[in-house]
Amino acid sequence: MISAVLFDADGVIQRPTIDWWSRLTSFVPADGAAFVADLMAAEKPSLVGKGDFREAVAEVLRRWDSPVSLEDALEPWTWFAAEPLVVSLIAELRALGIGCHLATNQQAYRRAIMQDERGYGEWFDQTFYSCDLGLAKPDPAYFRSILGTLEIPASSVLFIDDNESNVAGARSVGLHAEVYDLSSGVDTLTALLRQYELL
């Protein structure tokens, strides 16, 4: 009997609105892919609340001698939008008494946009951002931390994510977990929830 569902953010409830990859690779004259890889590596500590993401991006820009301003470099992290049909599904589940929670890896800069500017907290019973927990998926400790807060058994929780390794991490601590990608359509998510008799 599932009493709570954990939803990942990127690729599950929200998608990019602009081609951020092309934008980021344009910030240096050559070897844009390596530059973006450097940015992604620099972001990792802030995903678990260590270091400042803005400072990390500024350091990468300096290292690559990029002429782009820090604010312009940060802009691609704002290029996302939630899928209204998924938000409606979450509201439907909550109306049926199913606890719905956000479980996402984010640094504090993006967390503020999601939670404070765009009101994601209103859609969920609780939100679990990796930067707040000091733990990130797929670490099993991330999921154990959430279970400790919710005070419910792992067997009563369904976790939905577009990343196979995150799903494996959830399953390793006893959660029901399924791979779902928003690109496959909201009907696929509806069908998944019906498999667990949640709708």
Rank of each mutant, 00 (worst) to 15 (best):
F124C: 11
G121S: 12
T78D: 08
E83Q: 03
F80L: 03
E117H: 13
A82I: 01
S66L: 10
C131L: 01
L135T: 04
Q106L: 11
A112M: 05
Y120A: 14
E59G: 10
Y109N: 00
V68I: 12
L93S: 13
A103I: 07
A58V: 03
L102Y: 05
Y129V: 10
L70Q: 11
A42K: 06
R118V: 04
P45R: 12
A56W: 02
W123Y: 13
V68G: 14
A58Y: 07
G119W: 02
E83W: 01
L70W: 10
W64D: 08
F53T: 12
V48P: 00
E43K: 11
H101P: 09
G121I: 08
C131T: 07
R111P: 05
V57A: 07
Y129A: 04
V60W: 03
E75F: 10
K137G: 04
W77H: 10
A81V: 08
I113E: 09
Y109K: 09
P45E: 12
L96Y: 07
T104W: 01
Q106C: 02
G51L: 11
R62C: 10
A95G: 15
A42E: 05
R94Y: 12
W77R: 07
E71A: 15
P67I: 15
C100G: 07
L85T: 15
R118P: 00
F124H: 10
W64M: 04
R54G: 01
F128I: 14
S88A: 15
F53W: 06
L61I: 03
R94G: 05
Q107C: 15
Q106H: 13
V57D: 02
